[in-house]
Design a binder for these strands. Structure first.
Lengths: 338, 338
DNA sequence: TTTTAAAATGTAAACGGTTGCATAAACGGT
DNA sequence: ACCGTTTATGCAACCGTTTACATTTTAAAA
């Protein structure tokens, strides 16, 4: 069918071993042989067959990013996409390719994503912490299955994981408001059962403490994903006897709703109330005033995860790493009193 | 090392051919043999080695989505992600996996993405029209290289491509404004050298014509990507002797800027001015009032592209398809006078 | 019971590289 | 010219499936 290494060997008058060595830039090939072989390759239009190469090495040089997403709209969230880009950017120049697998579509066949590894479809996996299960960890460790988790696990396993520093995020956002003379800071997050929300709250509490402030339960809300949620939460806040004058939102969209509620009450941001939100999506530029956000570098998160994974693949015995990435506050209009 | 088909064959007292047939659900295996073999597989914890299987078939059952993105921020655009999700959703239940390749990182090695196919890393490619080159098309056709283009090509090749119906998008958005008693409709797009913008403009012009209106050059603007661009374009519009009272923006972000400009002039949306924008991103819900947008179903676009590609892979001789997907208008607050 | 066809299974050659080991060539030093 | 060492190349087994073809078994028909 197509040109193989044997054709090249015959045409160049050498053995297939020699051709293979030229292909792999082995340093025990004489320069003139190498050149001759390379010329023949070029003449014949030879491309090494990667499948055969994989077969001989018993590895695919592919890593999979497993995601668990149910519907297309969730994909609007740039979260995974940025991570994906970081991973790709790191592994590609190192000879690896990235495969994307949605756990849900995979499960349609009644298969599990761990088959990806057992069937040798991939050399390693990167998975979100939400997919982590105790027995899965056991199985993966038994099989010396290279993998990296994105997100801090609930239980402390000795496995590779990366996450952003959520506690730091909670702390710097709260501190920023306090430093800008906002006195009563509220905190609005998603479900506090999720460890990342718990950590963010923890950071908030730490910041209060450092400023000698007591947390007040009425200022800590644990719901809200939509603009409407944000509106109603903010309305509730403003009806308090002693309403907050600064709010940390862990979600952009919710913060947008709150902004509307504040305006509708005739109050001004940042004059009367200061707001900080999370996730520096382009959305942050769209509010009026523009939103101060915690910038989470998901691209870097991807790079870190990929770095860990390739290390694990190449040195399976290396010690496991856990890594928390710094976050940064992007100061915009919603949080600074002039 | 791990359990192979030979181990299974030996343990079950059959030949490897039989095991292979069981594996592939061949119908010339007796039920009891099949069951016996399956039991042995289960006992031994056998997983078929996909690399070997690929080797025997000389195909990877992987398709690549090639993107050309320069920096992480571009990945904030959910465009590719939704397409990607559609592709994955379609191919995974059909036994294929999705590989993501960023052309730019690939080029770092001095390699071209076409090598993905020549080296048999993938069975087919999906690429954005921006990567299409004349000599590439020639090469791919010679090699019977299965591929599908996302986006309508400039030149009319006999190749597989899918795109959304941009002309329709331009037309329905303009018509919608006209039907809502806006009289002078402006059109703001990106670079008109891009065929999709050209088609959108074409739709706009068609809608005007159907309403017996003449296009006016001062109402057609061809720049703008940022909120600031939108603000300045809108300001210019409002300074015209005869300003528009309806505007079609082909970009959400630009429309946000325009919205600010309108408010700053003390005018009201949708009372004084109507706005329609493109791309039904979550962003559309964030403006006040919420943005009427053309909903582009990128998920479906992915499905269509994947469908074409698998057909091409399985029946290389099939005729090439070109497909334009309908778009839909999501009516929200920016475009309907009460 | 024999004959014939159909169904089930086995045999062994492919698929295209890689690599340990053996061998040959080249080189430098005496 | 000879030896020892380094460098370059060849040989051939191997990676784990699939599948064309050959063979055996089973079932049905005569």
């Amino acid at each position: 069918m197509s040109v193989t290494i044997k054709d090249v060997a015959k045409a160049a008058g050498v053995s297939t071993a020699t051709v293979s060595r030229v292909l792999n830039n082995s340093n025990l090939i004489s320069p003139k042989t190498a050149e001759k072989v390379r010329n023949v390759m070029h003449e014949l239009g030879y491309f090494p067959n990667n499948i055969a190469r994989s077969f001989a090495h018993q590895s695919t040089y592919i890593v999979a990013l497993v995601v668990n997403i149910d519907d297309a709209t969730a994909f609007n969230n740039p979260f995974f996409y940025q991570i994906q880009y970081g991973i790709e950017k790191y592994i590609c120049p190192r000879g690896y390719y990235l495969m994307i697998v949605n756990e849900n579509t995979l499960n349609l066949n009644g298969t599990a994503f761990s088959k990806l590894f057992f069937e040798k479809r991939v050399d390693g996996l990167i998975l979100p912490v939400s997919l982590l299960r105790k027995n899965l960890v056991k199985k993966m460790e038994e099989q010396k299955f290279p993998f990296v988790i994105i997100g801090e696990p609930e239980n402390s396993y000795d496995i590779n994981w990366v996450d952003i520093n959520n506690k730091m995020a909670g702390e710097i956002s709260t501190t920023h408001l306090l430093n800008n003379k906002y006195k009563r800071i509220a905190f609005v997050s998603g479900n506090l059962k999720d460890i990342f929300n718990k950590n963010r709250l923890d950071g908030y509490l730490t910041a209060l403490k450092k400023h000698g402030l007591q947390p007040e339960p009425e200022l800590i809300k644990e719901r809200g994903f939509s603009k409407e949620d944000g509106y109603s939460i903010m309305t509730d806040f403003l009806e308090l006897k002693n309403p907050p004058d600064g709010i940390v939102f862990t979600d952009n969209i919710v913060a947008f709703g709150a902004l509307s509620a504040i305006k509708d009450q005739g109050l001004n941001v940042p004059g009367d109330i200061g707001i900080v939100s999370f996730d520096n999506y382009p959305v942050a530029e769209l509010s009026d005033p523009k939103m101060t956000t915690v910038d989470i570098d998901l691209f870097d998160l991807g790079i870190q995860a990929a770095t860990m994974l390739l290390k694990e693949i190449q040195l399976p015995s290396a010690t496991k790493q856990q890594s928390l990435l710094s976050v940064q506050l992007i100061k915009r209009g919603t949080s600074e009193r002039n």
